[in-house]
Nucleic acid binder design. Structure first.
Length: 480
RNA sequence: GCCCCCAUCGUCCAGAGGCCUAGGACGCCGCCCUUUCAAGGCGGAAACGGGGAUUCGAAUUCCCCUGGGGGCACCA
């Protein structure tokens, strides 16, 4: 099996393309075949190097490797279409000479006028084929004398293209609905249909796995391959990803660029696991599984035919599962840089130690890596800023001042500043003041961390250190 | 307008004629645990779009309708 992922660098890699890439990768790895990465960059107006890099970075981040193609090379020469233009020209000329394609001199204005006409009359809006009857030699002469011409494929008429789609089963298109489409533009550049199909043939691609948006273009690609004398590959058309409103996933639904998920604190493993579930299932009612397990069980023919809605909630849940699963060192390696970015400076040794003390507790309660700075910030700043809602909710209660006062006095006397002694001391305080934990401890939490939501209190105080903890308690006393 | 694809809880998937009083996961709602928040445990609400046909028997097969999606460029 040889499959390919062929993004066009006209935008950032978005989650829909990432899923297509993943399914290609899974199919290939399951079959022990090769994955080719090429760049369909024939659109030089919209393409850019920045997008090209973004696609590659995105695939690498997801851990989807390829065996051949851009960046890694391979036996088929350049894998960027912009560098294969002469090849496309050669094939186009061969097709024309063989009579499979013909020159067309209709102007864009004429074409769109006729298209509107046909649409209004309820006929298929495709090109009507009028230049097809022009004598080939006469046509070449007109072109050679400078008249603008495009090259069109002469679709067999009457006719029909039927193929067996791996996910959809048999699909048939009557050629009455397939126009004699353009192969070469009047400026001599190939269209997507031509370039892409030639590449698939030249690179010996056996399986084309792509989005359903290309389903109705498939007869065109099959017909080109056939005209080239090649055997068309097998096709698998994946349903599209939708936004929460059931419409095709797009910028309207927020940032759909893959890099936004990376920046948003998602783990690539979680992202891959979640996306694999969109249109496929692992079996056994399991939804969390490793990459190896996924590869072992993946089968294109099990892929769902209907479109799936991308559910950020479930992705976040899964991300939390993966975060909790991270080895501690790995967790630190992934979150400490975020803390430093948040602080705008490197962590000092003492801060690093403090963070590592409560990091296990933070790890348990995160869904996104980006929450680490929020949870640990109280350890790393001199002055906490009090969350207004938390202050209002907790500090305005009648017992708050007593609790903070009593806690301050008692904590000052704690000999060993560690979780257990702190807890012991504070529990005594609760008993003495006859306060329950909610009333007596929440004020301390807000005082120490600035928020009513934080890692567990005793550990937080221990990690904060005696001086800083007491300073914050006293500071609160002044405000109460 | 024309062509193609699709149709099970709010969402993602199980279900390939009787095992279905339709199963799991996310989310949601209770309860438990608990110093907050999470995590975890237990329980709950929640779906086969409609109509025909085939069959002793349809979520599962066929047809129609409806609904949703995609495509119809000298874009990819």
């Amino acid at each position: 099996m040889r499959a390919r992922f062929a993004p066009s660098p006209t935008g950032y890699l978005h989650v829909g393309s990432a899923r297509t890439a993943l399914f290609n990768w899974l199919a290939v790895r399951n079959a022990g075949g090769e994955l080719v990465l090429r760049s369909d960059d024939t659109d030089r107006e919209r393409g850019s190097e920045e997008y090209y890099r973004d696609v590659i970075d995105g695939l690498r981040w997801l851990g989807l490797d390829w065996d051949e193609g851009i960046e890694v090379g391979g036996p088929h020469g350049s894998y960027r279409q912009s560098e294969r233009l002469t090849r496309y020209g050669e094939v186009a000329e061969e097709l024309r000479k063989a009579g499979s394609a013909y020159l067309c001199f209709c102007t864009p204005d004429e074409l769109s006028a006729r298209r509107d006409e046909a649409r209004a009359a309820g006929r298929p809006p495709g090109y009507d084929g009028r230049c097809r009857t022009i004598e080939p030699t006469a046509a070449s002469e007109r072109r050679d004398s400078g008249e603008a011409a495009v090259l069109r494929l002469a679709i067999p008429r009457p006719g029909e293209t039927v193929f067996e789609d791996i996910v959809r089963g048999e699909v048939a298109f009557d050629h009455a609905n397939v126009e004699d489409f353009v192969l070469m533009r009047s400026n001599g550049s190939p269209t997507y249909h031509l370039a892409s199909t030639i590449d698939d043939v030249d690179f010996a691609i056996t399986h084309v796995i792509r989005g359903e948006d290309l389903l109705s273009s498939t007869p065109k690609h099959i017909l080109i391959a056939l005209a080239m004398g090649a055997e068309p590959p097998q096709y698998a058309h994946l349903s599209l990803l939708m936004g929460p409103d059931g419409k095709k996933l797009s910028k309207r639904h927020g940032d759909t660029a893959l890099h936004a998920y990376r920046a948003g604190g998602f783990l690539p493993e979680a992202f891959v696991n979640y996306v694999a579930l969109l249109g496929w299932n692992f079996g056994d009612d399991e939804s969390v599984f490793t990459r190896d397990e996924m590869v072992a069980r993946f089968d294109l023919s099990d892929v769902q035919k209907n479109p799936a809605i991308f559910d950020n909630e479930k992705l976040e849940w899964m991300n939390g599962v993966y975060i909790r699963d991270l080895a501690f060192d790995d967790f630190l390696a992934r979150t400490e840089p975020l803390l430093e970015a948040d602080l705008g400076r490197p962590l000092e040794d003492a801060e690093r130690d403090a963070y590592r003390e409560i990091a296990p507790l933070i790890q348990e309660r995160m869904r996104l890596l980006t929450e680490a700075p929020e949870q640990a910030r109280f350890l790393l700043v001199d002055e906490v800023s009090y969350d207004p809602a938390s202050w209002e909710k907790v500090m305005t209660k009648p017992d708050s001042r007593r609790a903070v006062e009593a806690a301050t006095t008692r904590l000052e006397a704690v000999e060993e500043w560690a979780t257990d002694p702190i807890e012991g001391t504070l529990r005594e305080m609760l008993a003495e003041l006859q306060l329950n934990a909610r009333k007596g401890l929440q004020p301390l939490r807000v005082a120490a961390t600035g928020s009513s939501v934080s890692p567990p209190l005793f550990e937080s105080l221990a990690a904060l250190g005696r001086e800083a903890s007491l300073k914050r308690l006293r500071g609160v006393l002044e405000r109460l």
